[in-house]
């Protein structure tokens, strides 16, 4: 009996691997790495202003009672260009958007904003990706929805497309209640 079982063990092991591989092939699982900070208060950070015309980004200033978006972006990031119109739309809808500019230079960001639109109230300078790492973000662009008490309630990974806008507005409305 024991021998009988062991003889079939390799086939069983292969069947398991086969099953998982087939599943992964036909129904690829979600491989995005979500931030573990969702649901937790925004980590303490005080980012210097990148541009002269507006403040940097400081966690302490967030307890305004009004939910907002925190957009992790960079002027050298191509999908950031793609999401710029959606951010403008969100701004037009009255959403306050702050930004963390990852590894960027003021001239480059100024050029980027004048070309693709400027939705940001504050822009924090993150020259060594330290803020990005503290947020649990693994790429640009990413957008965090932050409630009025400074808690992260949602993370959007990748560029915001037109179809994502309602979802983000809903999350903001939810956070406001």
């Amino acid at each position: 009996m024991k021998r009988g079982l062991l003889i079939w063990a390799p086939l069983l092991a292969f069947a398991v691997v086969f099953g998982f591989a087939a599943r992964e092939l036909w129904k690829p699982s979600d491989r995005t790495i979500a931030s573990g900070m969702v649901g937790k208060p925004l980590p303490q950070m005080a980012l210097k202003p990148l541009l002269l015309d507006r403040p940097g980004f400081t966690t302490a200033e967030l307890a305004t009672g009004k939910p907002r978006l925190l957009n992790v972006f960079a002027s050298w990031c191509i999908p950031c260009i793609a999401e710029a119109p959606q951010l403008m739309k969100l701004k037009a809808a009255g959403v306050e958007i702050d930004a963390v500019a990852v590894r960027d230079k003021p001239e480059a960001v100024e050029a980027f904003l004048s070309r693709y639109g400027d939705p940001y109230a504050r822009i924090g300078d993150d020259p060594r990706s330290a803020a990005q790492l503290a947020l649990g973000s693994s790429g640009v662009p990413e957008t965090f929805v932050i409630d009025g008490k400074g808690r992260i309630v949602k993370q959007h990974i990748g560029d915001i497309r037109e179809e994502d806008v309602p979802e983000i507005l809903a999350a903001l409305a939810e956070a406001a209640r």
Partner: peptide, 14 residues
């Protein structure tokens, strides 16, 4: 191939 060979092994090796 692998499944077939392992099944053949299981059926025949005894």
């Amino acid at each position: 191939y692998i499944g077939g060979a392992l099944a053949l092994f299981g059926a025949r090796v005894s």
